[in-house]
Design a protein around this nucleic acid. Sequence first.
DNA 1: GTCTATAACGTGATAGAC
DNA 2: GTCTATCACGTTATAGAC
Lengths: 220, 220
Amino acid sequence: MFAYITTAGQMKANKSLTVPDSSTEEKIKNAARRIFHKKGFAATRTRDIAAETGINLALLNYYFRSKQKLFDIIMLETMQGFLQSIKGVFNDELTSFDHKITAIVNNYIDLLIAQPDIPLFILSELKTNPQDLLGKIGMKDILMKSHFLKQFKEAVKAGKIAPIHPMHFIMNLMSMAVFPFVASPMIMGLGELSQKDFNELMTQRKVLIPKWIKALLKAK
Amino acid sequence: MFAYITTAGQMKANKSLTVPDSSTEEKIKNAARRIFHKKGFAATRTRDIAAETGINLALLNYYFRSKQKLFDIIMLETMQGFLQSIKGVFNDELTSFDHKITAIVNNYIDLLIAQPDIPLFILSELKTNPQDLLGKIGMKDILMKSHFLKQFKEAVKAGKIAPIHPMHFIMNLMSMAVFPFVASPMIMGLGELSQKDFNELMTQRKVLIPKWIKALLKAK
DNA sequence: GTCTATAACGTGATAGAC
DNA sequence: GTCTATCACGTTATAGAC
């Protein structure tokens, strides 16, 4: 048996209890996450990850066997983390439709201000990699079978909002919250904004977007 | 003097008159454009471009000297083409604010249905490459000093629309039109949509987005 | 202008000592 | 577990014949 498999297995099993975040394996993953998120799979060199970790290239392969395997782990964890942050909101049966909109927008924008590289990373890699990932992490069901979407459809039936394809609604919500982060180099360039200016605008959007979404849902 | 420089110069000078699109240089550029747009700089191999062109790798370097130089040309032309398609609309002094919104959305969506890889390509590469490109093609002035944006500011002053930072308006417009194409793998995966379904939705958005934009501009 | 052959280099991965 | 040294391979780029 290989050491890297055993180690990885142990880590998964009881990560928070026994294995400190400063273990070598975790340090490698943290470095890999930073660099993969920033440059994508193809532009990332394993040597850079090793250097950023402060270890040797051989040791990286000792733990993770190959660049691809390390990447797959990071990719999966990234998507799970991204999903985890809003999973609860979508299926909370106790909150109103309007409240969910606000909660989702706030969650997304807070997450993306903290980790702005994530959406472009996910979208870029999803384009080339096996799309099974979407199914593997159960994203489809969490979103499309959610209480949130059920509430949307009910509001349409009740005539409270204009009848549009649910996907238009999802796209509008994601677009307005996520796209600015994907396009931030262009937006900051065009508007001559500093990083601080940009984050300021995004913080404003936490309250603006829910307002806008509600307005356009009623547009005839 | 090197042949590739002379040839490139001649081509730029009177492209549409003397040099047919089926010249070797143009064929290489067309192949390079397809592959760069699809896979980005780092994941593209010059061998693939040569093969797709139907020529030899050595000949590619004879014309363009290096992968980077060929990429720079494609990148510049792509951004110019992207800008060109809406440049006229932005500064047409004869059309109304509302009409410009419709025209911009229609232009964008038609362009992106035909060439869906462009936005993710531009945004990915803009992140790593010198942002001077934005200045070099004059994008900033065309957008930020446009008659369109002037009309927006006037409408705000006249109290016709809610007072928000102009960048919010630009972001909303671009987000709703462009983001779905950036996120199409995810959107098609989540909604179980075929390419045809997706394009159908995007076509619907040509009339929906202007309506939505107008509604949210008035949201208080 | 176009090709074949090959050089020059970068990168992922492994062997083997400690 | 961690290192140094090196292999093996893929990729960019060039030399030189035609």
